[in-house]
Design a protein around this nucleic acid. Structure first.
Lengths: 368, 368
DNA sequence: ACGATTTGCCAAAACGTTTTAGTTGGCTAT
DNA sequence: ATAGCCAACTAAAACGTTTTGGCAAATCGT
């Protein structure tokens, strides 16, 4: 009868981790039985299983992950590959997605390997992870049209999930919101309310999410029989900093503009003071609508300024990314797309049209 | 003579990764020779080595990391464990440190395993990584006094590096700036310029960096023979959101206060408008000093408001964390502390005292 | 009572590397 | 000629798991 020891004391005394062999020796059983007992196989006696789990807990045994990974050809690691652009990590949108992913990863027992690469070493970095077997799959963020990462990953057959979509999205797993549909509806709403010159303060259109939003407002104007220049485009490459301020100033400088759609509440916030003090347009205050990614600390309903918005949780999207990857890797399910739901909130006075009827049949199911 | 194939084609055709056995078979050599050729041992002929490296490149061979990790007992993985508090990932300070760490990790061929845990599962999470051998070491961020994580990690003997210090810092590796010294000097500077009631808008004093800053201004007042209430404390738990605004408003409401020290430029920015429009104090504009972590997009020299600051790069700190861990794990060096340098910039008119002479001998080398 | 089935356990192989402890053959020094 | 040495290679063990295939004892059905 050995006295119970603090697991960390065992670790320190041994100078190495407790292995399955230690357990086998301790209990006079084979390592096969230990393994099968701990992994819940039915060919282990209930009494034996109890002895094994007790001893494992007492000695603080945790299976060596590298041995498991080697033999099972599964790592329970996900790679999250980012361009080595420090600005990225300062983007609250990214942080929000990551927070959601980390929470779900914990639940599903995955680890996220975060890594950065030099601007011109994108594919080689993915290739390294594919070939050295250190991850089960990849998260691809901010896809571009004809994204090389997608091309590469489809080629290798490795599991991956894209946050966003591009033209081949029916062939891989993705998580996205309805960028096109949402912005189409916001655009039609403003048009229905009489606005004839509207600013879109958009994100970087090298990325599809922003491109699709642009396409949506353009189509909305066209479908309403309005001229091409109904929407005036302003692009920001990063939501932090003063882009929101300077672009808001530019938009307000055009006295014909009576409404602004923001692609992120961060851009709106940065132009907040300008909006609050902007003189009326044609007798009405400037109309403001925004994408609301449900970022913490940034709730559009708590602003003094009345803002219409469409809300979709980036946090949920992060969680869904890991869930989809787990479905592919753990359950062998085929890749599938997950649409994160969106909720509209339209301020009184703008609410003159049903937002559900503004996406015409020929625009349905468009991704961008 | 086989024709050259695209590495990914080989991968797809094989249905599995290229292994060292494949290389051995291809070249008619033993796996020992392949291994030793690729790892630069001298007992391999130059011609043979060339053949091996060529074949490896041609077939896109990368050693299976899990096999390497198992046999070498080294993972080249670092765990970055965070409380599952989504707010954390929205903190630009954290993002900045992480960006620096990721850059250095790439250089030193490490991967960062980012993970979150429920609030009450901190130590078990560390324990899991220690016991399952999935990482070489840990980064510990935002230490508290008598931090349990440090206690636990010192106990196990696993490598770790702390970003910040606590009382046992001579026994482990750390990276830090001189919180105490810097804030002592800022405090003495303001005192020397005649301020007798000064606000410190500080971070969360559950964390040592903020506690040490508090201690520093308190000591500075004491050393100057001023009363305890010379410094008025305001604490914020998170630098985003409206804390900077509300705390600035509170500070300005005290008409005796003639100067404010901010613990972060983010807090300052959030109170920026209030500062710009604040009425003079005793005939002079309110004096403002801040910590400048060299965050991107937030350069205090570009503000309309003249601000004294002490700058220390969080990005560099992040890089130093990984460098220190590599020194311990790869070179077997004993743990050591790295002080990230700080630079003062004092606005004209406040610069009436030499900032270098304000830290008295009996305060030297204080960590807090 | 006895063959068939079930229960509970185990030896050995496999995963893909690195490392140890060689072996072989050719060259050098005497 | 031959002992000694060096250059270039390799067989086998080891890392710590999971899995395959099997075996012995206990239980069951008739």
């Amino acid at each position: 009868m050995e006295k119970p020891r603090k697991p960390s004391a065992v670790l320190a005394a041994l100078g190495r981790s407790v292995t399955i062999k230690d357990l086998a020796a301790e209990l006079g059983l084979s390592i096969t039985t230990i393994s099968r007992a701990l992994n819940g196989y039915s060919d282990v006696g209930e009494k034996t299983r109890r002895r094994v789990t007790d001893a494992a807990a007492r000695l603080g045994y945790h299976p060596n992950r590298n041995a498991q990974r080697l033999v099972m050809q599964r790592t329970h690691n996900v790679a999250w590959v980012q361009t080595d652009n420090e600005l990225k990590y300062l983007d609250p949108h990214f942080a929000e997605v990551m927070a959601g992913a980390l929470g779900q990863a914990r639940v599903l027992n995955y680890d996220i390997v975060l890594t950065s690469h030099a601007i011109d070493r994108e594919i080689p970095t993915y290739d390294r992870y594919v070939r050295d077997n250190s991850v089960d799959g990849f998260i691809v963020d901010l896809p571009r049209e004809n994204d090389e990462r997608v091309t590469y990953l489809m080629d290798t057959g490795r599991a991956f999930v894209v946050h966003g979509r591009e033209r081949r999205c029916d062939r891989y797993g993705w998580v996205d919101m309805d960028n096109y549909g949402n912005f189409y509806r916001l655009a039609r709403l403003l048009i229905a309310n009489g606005h004839r010159r509207i600013a879109l303060i958009n994100g970087d259109e090298h990325f599809n999410y922003a491109l699709y939003r642009h396409n949506a407002v353009r189509d909305a104007a066209q479908d309403a029989g309005l001229p091409e220049d109904t929407f005036v485009l302003f692009n920001s490459s990063h939501p932090m900093g003063d882009a929101g301020f300077t672009l808001t100033a530019s938009a307000l400088a055009d006295r014909e503009i009576t409404a602004i759609i923001y692609s992120s509440i961060l851009l709106l916030m940065s132009g907040y003071e300008l909006l609050m003090t902007a003189p009326d347009r044609k007798g009405r205050p400037i109309a403001v609508a925004t994408m609301d990614d449900n970022l913490r600390h940034l709730d559009p309903t708590r602003l003094a300024l009345r803002v219409s918005f469409v809300r979709s949780s980036l946090h949920d999207a992060g969680a869904a990314l890991i869930a989809e990857l787990s479905r592919q890797c753990d359950e062998g399910r085929p890749p599938s797309g997950t649409m994160i739901p969106s909720v509209f909130q339209i301020i009184p006075g703008l609410d003159r049209t049903s937002i559900d009827e503004t996406l015409p049949v020929h625009r349905r199911n468009r991704i961008g």
